[in-house]
Nucleic acid binder design. Structure first.
Lengths: 252, 252
DNA sequence: GAACCTGATTAACCTATGTGAATCGGTCTT
DNA sequence: AAGACCGATTCACATAGGTTAATCAGGTTC
């Protein structure tokens, strides 16, 4: 599936990013090299650091850690719209060159990589494959958003939670961040999970209990253990198609 | 805001599309001409016609009528994720060149315009402004999706409905499809509204009644009359920023 | 114009999830 | 070690919205 050199998991975060990107579209060795040279590694950012868009948005990539997009309403409630995991673009504002309209927070110590807007557009001109890969990454983010909409629209609490865990399991697997025992870090509080799933904190807790009681998953100290992936998958009618670009095999 | 020739509303649907597109990014007269020549007008499609993605997705534009993207779950419930109004791209699958993963239905007699994939990429090469405008259109669709997610995540039924109506009012205004009396066609059944808002048909009806009783809107025969736009706006904390590319003026 | 059909409307009832508040367990601070 | 926090957990209670099913109204068909 991947071309030539598939970066082994557990390597350098920049390699992880390249590896992820190349899954969307094969990248020539020179394109990879150019990207490697263009990415500037940022400092380690502490948790709960808000990141605001700049007027001329550079390309920002999450190298390690965790972040999420959110929006607030007047009543103080917040909705998390996107979860950004290592290897993801932090946001796609740079594609339109307009001021990034979205703010995001880190929820774990995180490191971002950055490519100057100007430099990135030179890169995409030189290597159209980079642009194609980037557009596909953006399309996947859209698909993820659509799937989350479906969750909020017609899945129950337990199904939403299960679906989210399946999604993260899949995405983090691709990034090489899932342990051999099907465990991964999930640096989000239950309140944050609620904000992502459209549920109250209390109900997230109840729902988590239900999954734990049935021995489907374990969750403690920001680490998830999946004990029964199959159950999770069918419970939430999770279909990884939207994460791979494959045709969805939805119900009739 | 718009450049040189702003197409007057009520004109040819292709002009409406160009007018909409140029709002995202000014288009040179030659670019407009090239687009005009490239667009092939399709036949009038009856309501409830499902349109499936092709393997090599052409650029498809809704010229007139109404359509929506939806997905189904195993239990037969459906979620409408996107509403496509005249002047919109029907979907953005062509940006990635991968098989369009999304199916959509018309809910009114509709006419689509089509530009061959190959031809479109030649156009964007010749006129980068077309690509920029298209990317911004895609970004707006993403923003709309995000806003709908917020609706499902933290707005009540009446707020969701109000927000949707505000959104459509705005989008259709830009397309020149809102009458001087603040009315517009909304060719969706209450069941479909429910599928878009994550509500049951019955509750859509109840909610509609509430808005009617307070004389905020009128809705009959697929036509909405807005009597109190200000009320609707504040009720749903509608902020058109996400439809214009302007910075959002969200609550702190 | 009788039989149909589809969509809107109502009513009665039910439940998934929200709310508010208290408790508990760690961890960090002083 | 005494607070002070923060996040997880529980409990008791409230309610928005779902479900089922019946009725109604307008438009079509034959």
């Amino acid at each position: 599936m991947t071309s030539v050199l598939s970066a082994p998991p557990g390597t350098d975060p920049v390699e992880r990013f390249l590896h992820r990107l190349a899954k969307f579209e094969p990248l020539e060795a020179e394109a990879r090299d150019a990207l490697r040279r263009a990415i500037v590694r940022g400092p380690l950012v502490p948790p709960y650091q808000e990141v605001h868009g700049e007027s001329v948005p550079d390309v920002v990539v999450l190298l390690s850690g965790w972040a999420c997009h959110f929006q607030m309403l007047g009543n103080g409630k917040r909705q998390i719209s996107t979860l950004v995991v290592p290897g993801d673009f932090a946001d796609f504002g740079f594609l339109t060159g307009s001021a990034a309209d979205i703010q995001y927070v880190t929820t774990a110590p995180s490191q971002f990589g950055r490519i100057r807007a100007r430099q990135f557009s030179e890169l995409t001109e030189q290597f159209p494959s980079i642009m194609r890969a980037t557009l596909k990454a953006a399309a996947m983010e859209t698909a993820i958003g659509r799937e989350r909409l479906i969750s909020l629209g017609l899945r129950t609490a337990i199904e939403r939670l299960a679906h989210l865990i399946c999604e993260l399991w899949w995405r983090l697997s691709v990034a090489g961040l899932v342990g051999p025992d099907n465990s991964f870090h999930l640096p989000m509080t239950q309140a944050e999970l609620g904000a992502a799933l459209g549920l109250s904190t209390v109900h997230v807790n109840r729902t988590l209990q239900a999954l734990r009681r049935r021995d489907i998953i374990g969750l403690q100290g920001g680490k998830v253990h999946i004990h029964d992936l199959k159950y999770l998958t069918t419970l939430s009618s999770f279909d990884a198609g939207y994460l791979t670009g494959a045709a969805p095999s939805r119900a009739t």
